[in-house]
Design a protein around this nucleic acid. Structure first.
Lengths: 99, 99
DNA sequence: TATTCATATGAATGGAATTTAATATGGACC
DNA sequence: GGTCCATATTAAATTCCATTCATATGAATA
């Protein structure tokens, strides 16, 4: 009986983080909710491309969004925003903390 | 002056982790050094494929290897094996901890 | 309701990463 | 030296992803 040590699910979540734009979004959102325009400015990335990446993050459950007037606000779900001692992201399977 | 929040270098390191086989190798090595045959058995992956993934991990500095008789032993470098309170992997830019 | 603003979606492309198969290397042992 | 064993390397095939471009949606406001 061969035991798979690691859940492929965890690798999949990590893959979502393994892109500079998506990682940038998450890092930015660690300091609070932002709308898409603000993220675009901060990360210096095109509208459509950012939107695709936001969709990937949303599909993975790493961000959530709601409308505010004519803009869309993105934020980290409570379960993901693990702020015990410094900035960290909780993926469920593992936790990533930044210095 | 547009500030890139996240270092692309960190995303790149995370990409190395974002594969089930490579993540499995790291998790396995967290409990101690292993030779390639042992890893093959544990992870149920073909020799050549595992070798490729080990090379990727080595190139990223996430594992190191040395010969022991006729086998090759792989282990986590000291800088990576961050064992403060549970199992964790230190990427430099961030730290990944498993429950 | 027509227009504009902010964001999302879909299809097409190019390039990179994964996988496989075949072969090479290099130490151990006879 | 020759053979076996464990692992690495190369090249080719394939699959996956990021990016771009063009267009759609949908709320706000005139």
């Amino acid at each position: 009986m061969k035991t798979k040590i690691t859940s492929p699910a965890c690798a999949e979540k990590l893959k979502v983080l393994s892109d500079p734009t998506r990682l940038g979004v998450l890092e930015s959102l660690m300091s609070g909710p932002k709308n898409v325009g603000e993220l675009m400015g901060e990360l210096d990335v095109e509208q459509s491309l950012l939107s695709h990446h936001l969709a990937t993050l949303r599909d993975a459950g790493l961000v959530e969004s709601f409308r505010d007037g004519k803009t869309m606000i993105y934020q980290l779900p409570e379960s993901v925003a693990d702020s015990t001692a410094g900035k960290a992201i909780n993926l469920g399977c593992c936790k990533i903390s930044f210095d």
